[in-house]
Simulated scan of single mutants.
Amino acid sequence: MTDDTLVCDIKNVLFIRFAFGFRQNFNGSSKIKRLSYLYTIFFSLLFTALTLFSNDLSYHSLSYLILALTEYFVLFTVSFLTKDEYIQRNFKLIYGLDTLPGAKKIFQNLEYFLKVSFVLGLANILFFATMICFRISGLCSIANLLSFFYILLHRLACDLGDYVLIMFIGLLYSRVKLLRNYLVTKSANTAWDRYSVKQFINMYESLANTIHDSAAPVKVTVCFSMYSSSLELSIN
């Protein structure tokens, strides 16, 4: 049994994903939903325009251009079709599993981890971009400013798209840890009876159902993340 309450606050992360063109299922009037729909399309067109006008057509640049567009649009398509609803469904509170003793502390740690890793990931990109500007001043000149801005935008957008994997791994780890703690505590303190076994099976099935519900979009994200990384290495 699930509730609309989320086990931890991920709204800020989802909103920043939306700012980079990843569609969200906003609650509100039909006007707000239409505007959010149009914004994601506008951002994808802007990204495409920056890609086309910020690269020369040498072989290396053309290869990078194709890879960059493909990487972003795979992540964009997953988000556009699902509206990131599978993320919120997975983070909804599951009674029985997410209400076990110690769950509050575990999910507080998860929320802290997600926020810190998110901020550090963005800070890492901005830091290296700044260092590149200092080391290669010509890259950040007015003439190359559009290309540099595009590379920065591309990396931020794609990292935000891939960040879903960190969210799911963190959530899965937290729930498995809850189950493990429950199993160890229950085994040490009380004898297992029919009700205890049934309760544990129900919690395990609830966990398995959350994994199954998000299997398709997560698999696409994982597979393409591995593919794009290997392809980028081969291009370089």
Rank of each mutant, 00 (worst) to 15 (best):
N25K: 15
L46F: 12
F47C: 00
Q24T: 05
K33V: 05
F26I: 05
F73L: 09
F42P: 02
F22D: 07
E85Y: 04
R34C: 07
L62I: 09
F73W: 14
F20A: 05
K83L: 06
I32N: 03
Y37G: 02
K83N: 13
Y39D: 03
S44G: 07
L52M: 12
S79P: 04
A19C: 15
N55F: 15
S44R: 07
A68T: 13
T40W: 02
V78K: 01
H60Y: 14
L35D: 10
L62E: 03
L67S: 09
L62F: 08
A68G: 06
T82E: 06
Y59Q: 11
S36K: 04
S36V: 03
L57C: 06
T48G: 05
L57D: 10
G21H: 11
F47Y: 08
F73H: 14
R23H: 13
H60G: 14
T70D: 04
G21I: 11
F20P: 06
G28I: 08
L52T: 08
T82C: 04
L38V: 15
L35S: 14
I41S: 00
L46Q: 07
I41Q: 00
L62C: 05
S63H: 02
Y64G: 08
G21P: 12
F76W: 13
F73G: 00
Y37L: 09
F20C: 05
A19Q: 12
D84Q: 10
S58F: 11
L38H: 14
R23N: 07
A49L: 09
D84A: 03
F47R: 02
A49K: 04
L62Y: 04
T48V: 12
G21W: 09
F47W: 01
A19G: 07
R23F: 05
L45C: 15
E85C: 12
L35E: 12
